[in-house]
Design a binder for these strands. Structure first.
Lengths: 126, 126
DNA sequence: GCCATACTACTACATATGTAGAAGCCGTTC
DNA sequence: GAACGGCTTCTACATATGTAGTAGTATGGC
């Protein structure tokens, strides 16, 4: 499920609160995003077509719900980046991440800590 | 410098060997990619317009060179993903990376190792 | 009952992206 | 010197994406 930039904005608003009406989505868009109400409707309609969002009518009002999770969306966005920009392999990305800046020392530490705890699970969990 | 999927293919071929003619680029595209020669030319022209690639004439033949590095392209693709899908923060991405699968245990170990070596620089640098 | 709202469906349109054909120019080969 | 093959520039066109207007319809307030 590949989302476009604009679709991400809508989805984020929906994930933040759902089910939600188009108007509610509108109210939750980041301050910078100033779209016409009908633009939001268009995006929502497209997302419904894509089956990223469900639409239910309450009376004549549409109420939307995400059908894909943020995690799922992140996963596919991430995989897509990995494919096109990093030869589809984690190796180059890990290298890039750690070597080529990006991380503050603190984040590096956290990363190291997390990675380690994952790499060597002591009392593993079912 | 935002590259599209197709443009990435071209750039990868160019990074692999450059300067290169359109035909050389064509020969270096991944096996799966079967584009008409003129398609490659179109992509190259667009990349030149975008200033991602330079074009020099040798006689009547165009020879292309990347103007942006793979590293640079990766960086901006990465940042773009971070922006749209991970709230622009490394935190969520690091969490995602480590928690939400993706890494083999081996990679996690490597990541931990790399991250640690970076996180605790002994003779630090200004 | 009538009006102002708010909502919906449909249509529109510019720009971006993927993909390629057509036509013309030039050097190599008989 | 005519034909062939390769290169170039232009043009084309479908689909995707971003963004929104218009017109019709239902609803709550007075």
């Amino acid at each position: 499920m590949k989302l476009t930039e604009a679709e991400w904005q809508i989805m984020k608003a929906l994930w933040a609160k759902h089910p939600a009406t188009a108007r509610e989505v509108m109210d939750r868009l980041p301050a910078g995003v100033k779209w016409a109400y009908t633009t939001i409707k268009t995006m929502l309609t497209r997302l419904v077509e894509k089956q990223a969002v469900s639409e239910a009518k309450q009376g004549n009002i549409s109420v939307y719900d995400p059908l894909i999770s943020q995690r799922g969306a992140r996963l596919s966005a991430f995989r897509s980046l990995l494919e096109t920009a990093f030869d589809g392999a984690m190796g180059p990305l890990v290298h890039f991440l750690v070597e080529e800046e990006q991380l503050t020392p603190k984040q590096k530490q956290e990363l190291a800590r997390l990675a380690q705890s994952q790499a060597q699970p002591k009392g593993e969990r079912p």
